[in-house]
Design a protein around this nucleic acid. Sequence first.
DNA 1: CCAGAACGTAGGCATATGCCATCATCTTGT
DNA 2: ACAAGATGATGGCATATGCCTACGTTCTGG
Lengths: 152, 152
Amino acid sequence: MSQTTLPGLALCNNAMLRRATRKLGQFYDDVLAPSGLKATQQGLLYQIHIGNEPAMGAIAAALVMDLSALGHTLKPLIRDGYIETFADPADRRVKRVRLTPQGRTKLEEALKLWHVAQQRFEDIVGKEQAASLRAALDEIAALDFDAPPAAT
Amino acid sequence: MSQTTLPGLALCNNAMLRRATRKLGQFYDDVLAPSGLKATQQGLLYQIHIGNEPAMGAIAAALVMDLSALGHTLKPLIRDGYIETFADPADRRVKRVRLTPQGRTKLEEALKLWHVAQQRFEDIVGKEQAASLRAALDEIAALDFDAPPAAT
DNA sequence: CCAGAACGTAGGCATATGCCATCATCTTGT
DNA sequence: ACAAGATGATGGCATATGCCTACGTTCTGG
């Protein structure tokens, strides 16, 4: 039990973030398991759902993820018939994504489970805590590390 | 730019955590790139370094990661000669891990870069902010979701 | 001391993610 | 209108992670 508080590792922002992600990911995945979706997939379906037949690039940008990574991640969902892609008529370079009817059904099913996980998590850490955590994480996702440190 | 603040996705603790992890991971990876190590690998080497020839199970527990996942992750490091494993003399079921001399050298090299990334990150978000974020993440990693919700 | 339970790890399979090279498609300057 | 450059997506390769099963070790009851 001392490992958790070992010096050094606990000082690395990135390592701590990854560790928490593994933990929380396992939890959400567990709760979502009955739906057959992983938490990442549920999130992806939802992101597509709230978008207006979003382009892949837009999804990737919103999730701060690599475009090719997104492409890979979408494949199982396409294979399972939850989403489908189609070229943007106005710009055929752009590929848009939308849920299939089955995808919508599956998403609804998964969302119910998601609520359970979300609720359980917030019951434990507190609603406020969770909110401020999300805010902090949102801030990180929006950081611009390329900005010259000594600009101006 | 509106995607970042779209409703829904931003409410999922898990999704936000993953997103921030991707972002920060890319940053740390970029900075560590010259060493040839990924941030995860550097963290792993460090964890092994500060441990006393830790057993795989101990490492996995400390990092809240699946034992088999750890095994997979170690492979490239073994292949590249940074670490080596050996059976615990007292219990041959247990496999312990230690850095090789090259591993130690490589870790030192990577740690210098890590400091740069760490510093840069904390310059941006603030030392206090970073510390409280790590504390929150540590708390999450230590959560016990199995605890009966209505126990007493 | 032996058979079966318990423990620790490895392997196979699958998803998550990223980088880079490539290809297809638009956009633009001339 | 055409060639060069910019933009969006794919495929190949590699690591990160997890689950489940199989296998070797150690421990325990009889």
